[in-house]
């Protein structure tokens, strides 16, 4: 189909969402279906279709989503109800809304590769320490099944 002229196109808004944990790099296709499911569960099929949600990009710690202008807060509310992606826990927090992706890309802060450090024992179980940005550390339980993560800070670790 021939593209519409710019004056006949729908106006869009782009939303930059920060992922938590910050080292997650969301796959755009999986994130699209997850957000679409959340929006459908919250607002129904008709309202979700009117939002015209799509996921433009996913980089480490961030995702850029697109929707029709005027529907951005509904999409952000739907994103707030996303709790898992591919079976692991995630949260999406809105950072900025803009009419261009270029403006949002400037807001993306580069997140360093998480470094897995030494092992610690907590309540008799071994945890791997993952250093995040700032003072934050994530303790990832070393097991094959039921992988559990604890969210601590360096000061907490000093008090173990």
């Amino acid at each position: 189909m021939k593209p519409r002229p710019p004056t006949l196109r729908d106006r869009r808004r782009y939303v930059l969402a920060a992922c938590a944990p910050e080292y997650r790099e969301p796959d755009p296709k999986t994130l699209y279906y997850t957000v679409l499911d959340a929006a459908t569960a919250l607002y129904g099929d008709a309202a979700t279709a009117a939002m015209q949600i799509s996921v433009m990009a996913g980089v480490r710690g961030y995702a850029i989503l697109r929707c029709r202008r005027g529907e951005e807060w509904r999409m952000i509310t739907a994103c707030a109800t996303v709790t898992s992606l591919n079976g692991s826990r995630i949260a999406l927090h809105p950072v900025a809304v803009s009419g261009t992706m270029h403006a949002l890309r400037r807001r993306i802060r580069s997140i360093p590769e998480p470094s897995d450090g030494e092992e610690v024992m907590l309540e008799g179980e071994p945890y791997c320490v993952r250093q995040c940005s700032g003072q934050n550390i994530d303790l990832i339980k070393k097991s094959i099944k039921n992988q559990k993560t604890l969210y601590f800070t360096q000061k907490d670790r000093e008090e173990f």
Binding site: Q135, N136, K148, L150, Y151, F152, T153, K155, D156
Partner: peptide, 11 residues
């Protein structure tokens, strides 16, 4: 829960 008080306060 799974997060310390300090981490919750920072977040």
């Amino acid at each position: 829960g799974d997060s310390s008080v300090r981490r919750l306060a920072h977040e």
